[in-house]
């Protein structure tokens, strides 16, 4: 679907989505803070805390990208480029860490 020829009705429908997403984002912000406090009190491991925090953040991020940035209605070429970017992002994020994990015990 292109935004190029959107009717006023379409836009109004969009606006309702934006407000729903806004409320969801606020709720998830509350959840992530609450869960973090809970984790601190219950003494969860770092791995659990990281996984939960990143999971919630990913949901929030996807909501922003899909609805506010209209990614959900874009064509496949943009997905290709962003997938490439995401792949290199992960490479950059994860491979250098092996440098330190391989040297465990040096410290």
């Amino acid at each position: 679907m292109s935004h190029h020829e959107m009717s006023v009705e379409d836009v109004k429908k969009h606006v309702r989505t934006y407000i729903a997403v806004f409320v969801a984002l606020l709720v998830f912000t509350g959840i992530t803070v609450g869960v973090s406090m809970l984790g601190q009190n219950q003494g969860w491991t770092v791995t659990t805390a990281v996984l939960i925090a990143l999971f919630v953040a990913s949901i929030k991020g996807s909501l922003v990208a899909c609805y506010f940035m209209h990614l959900i209605s874009e064509k496949s070429m943009l997905f290709g480029i962003l997938a490439l970017c995401a792949f290199f992002f992960l490479v950059l994020l994860l491979i250098p860490v092996i440098t330190v994990s391989d040297n465990v015990g040096v410290h």
């Binding site: 912000t29 953040a57 929030k60 990208a65 940035m69």
Partner: peptide
């Protein structure tokens, strides 16, 4: 929205972990 999105990740990573 991208700037917002970055913050959505910065917030848990820096404050909550």
């Amino acid at each position: 929205h991208f700037v917002d999105l970055v913050w959505i990740f910065l917030f848990p990573v820096l404050y909550l972990l």
